[in-house]
């Protein structure tokens, strides 16, 4: 049933036409996140060199690329952890570049960071409470939603987060971000270092989260898995977007297959 709703949802929001970047056939969903000519530098090193990107309401967008391409920097800039040296970040039409990270959360952007970054010395429940920090008090229905998505977290609610397995920590990082009721969820390498079975589970849950109405911007090295659940994908190489297409096209693209899906050239 969830798969069915997801399918309906997906066809409603994405357009199957081959060139969505230029001329969508039907009216596209409004943009929730827009990056315009975004530049970010660390001292003398420029990490992003003019990125243009759009995430539309209801989509799952995958941001692919090799190590050091600038994927994490992109998400961190959206969250206000980096200030762009030039360009704009717009969320629901409003400029948010330069807004500090704690304020960005309040606008409706959740971020599950690279390396999970759960509060290791707090319990699972305390971590989830931190996720709901922006609200006066935690809402029980949010907690139940997270526990329904991640039954493992419910089982381990009183356990210290530092004692969880990698997969459980990833679930906690995602659940914690969901506690803030984000409209847009940023996921940074959710599959990193996890066993294939757990990775499959995590991606199923990402689909489910999206089906429940949260837009997802997904950064992944695991391009095959990411593109399977994404509507569209962007490929980032040394700070520039080099490809942008519907996910299915990217999955079939020979350049992607060799560079990111580990296939040798036929």
């Amino acid at each position: 049933m969830t798969a069915a709703t997801h399918l309906v949802h997906r066809t409603a929001t994405t357009d199957p036409a081959p060139a969505p970047a230029t001329a969508p056939a039907t009216a596209p969903a409004p943009a929730i996140l827009e990056l315009a000519d975004l530049h970010v530098s660390y001292g003398a090193i420029s990490a992003l060199r003019g990125i243009d990107m759009v995430v539309r309401e209801g989509e799952v967008v995958a941001l692919l690329g090799a190590n050091g391409a600038g994927k994490t920097t992109t998400l961190r800039t959206v969250s206000g952890l980096h200030r762009p040296t030039a360009g704009e970040v717009r969320f629901c039409g409003e400029r948010i570049d330069g807004v500090s990270s704690h304020a960005v959360v309040g606008l409706g952007i959740g971020h599950s960071p690279e390396g999970r970054r759960v509060f290791a010395d707090m319990t699972v429940l305390e971590n989830l409470h931190m996720g709901a920090y922006r609200f006066k008090r935690l809402r029980q229905e949010d907690l139940e939603r997270v526990f329904t998505l991640f039954p493992r977290l419910a089982e381990r609610r009183t356990q210290q987060a530092g004692t969880l397995s990698g997969g459980e920590q990833q679930m906690l990082a995602m659940g914690r971000a969901l506690m803030g009721r984000p409209e847009l969820l940023l996921l940074d390498e959710p599959s990193m270092g996890l066993a294939p079975l757990i990775v499959a589970q995590i991606f199923e849950i990402i689909k489910e989260i999206n089906a429940q109405g949260t837009t997802v911007l997904l950064v992944e090295q695991n391009a095959a898995q990411a593109l399977k659940i994404a509507d569209r994908g962007y490929v980032l190489e040394t700070g520039r977007i080099t490809m942008h297409a519907p996910a299915r096209e990217l999955l079939d693209d020979p350049r992607i297959r060799t560079a990111y899906l580990g296939e040798t050239t036929p």
């Binding site: 990270s101 959360v105 970054r117 759960v118 509060f119 931190m130 922006r134 971000a177």
Partner: peptide
């Protein structure tokens, strides 16, 4: 424990 992660939760550091 992690100021940056706290900021991502909406904590004004």
């Amino acid at each position: 424990q992690d100021p940056e992660a706290a900021g991502l939760m909406g904590v004004d550091i």
